[in-house]
């Protein structure tokens, strides 16, 4: 009798096992892949599920305000680019002339500029696109070791190309690089003096070592101006507009690289 019960238990166990092993699992037979570019011909009209207007109306009025007109298109480049030069120049101007702070030079990063500035009308929205981050202008003091690290950082990035992250935008500074050597460095009108400390204006993001700017990590942080870089750009463009000045720029060889 007992045997028979065990037999049945075994049988049931077997059935359960078969049932479990029949639990479907799937095997990939083949795959297709194709990524779709989101182009002009795709409509935006039919997606009525989301009411964007409540948000859009609020910001459009401010964003569509034209605050400048440019004679040329400006973009980042390496070793120097129109866009980087322009923004570093206006940052140094803002720091010195508008904020009345002491700064010897300015350094920013090309990776932080998220778009180019077009020829023609420039809107507030375009500047938000260019500088979406709420980065603030800060002033630091660098000793000679930190300065030399900074100069080497510029050298290294100046040899990169074909990337939005190549090149380092600067103002108030000129560098000649020949081959692997730094040939000459000027801060303002004077040759770099490694017995001196220099004040630099940059963003809090970079000052904290962003974009591998490690030379800032142990530098003397003098002050945070609490001015957003984006606001500095917008205010500067409005200032020019008031004086009816259109944007124009050319490269001035502030970073020269030769083999």
């Amino acid at each position: 009798m007992k045997f028979s019960i065990y037999k049945h238990i075994l049988l049931i166990g077997f059935v359960v096992l078969i049932t479990l092993s029949c639990k479907p699992s799937y095997k990939v037979t083949h795959i297709n892949s194709s990524n779709t570019a989101i182009e002009n011909n795709l409509s935006t009209d039919n997606f009525s599920e989301f009411d964007l207007s409540q948000y859009k109306n609020k910001i459009d009025k401010q964003m569509n305000e034209v605050i400048s007109n440019s004679k040329i298109e400006m973009d980042v480049n390496s070793p120097e680019g129109l866009l980087g030069n322009f923004i570093c120049d206006l940052t140094l101007f803002t720091t010195r002339q508008l904020l009345k702070k002491d700064a010897d030079f300015c350094i920013l990063n090309n990776g932080g500029f998220r778009t180019s500035l077009p020829k023609g009308d420039i809107t507030v929205g375009k500047i938000f696109e260019l500088m979406p981050f709420d980065n603030q202008l800060v002033i630091l003091e660098l000793d000679s070791n930190q300065m030399i690290e900074l100069i080497n950082y510029i050298k290294q990035k100046s040899f990169l190309s074909n990337s939005r992250k190549a090149g380092v935008p600067i103002s108030g500074m000129r560098i000649s690089i020949i081959g692997a050597d730094i040939y000459r460095v000027f801060i303002g009108t004077k040759e770099f003096d490694n017995s001196k400390k220099y004040k630099v204006v940059t963003t809090n993001y970079l000052a904290n070592g962003g974009d591998q700017m490690n030379f800032f990590k142990n530098a003397n942080h003098i002050e945070n101006t609490n001015v957003l870089l984006r606001d500095a750009i917008i205010d500067y463009l409005k200032l020019l507009q008031k004086q009816k000045i259109s944007l124009d720029a050319e490269l001035d060889g502030r970073i020269e690289v030769s083999e």
Binding site: S21, C22, P24, S25, Y26, K27, V28, T29, H30, I31, N32, S33, S34, N35, T36
Partner: peptide, 10 residues
């Protein structure tokens, strides 16, 4: 986009 085609297999 990636389309996967599965078949039932043990």
């Amino acid at each position: 986009r990636i389309d996967f085609y599965f078949s039932k297999k043990k």
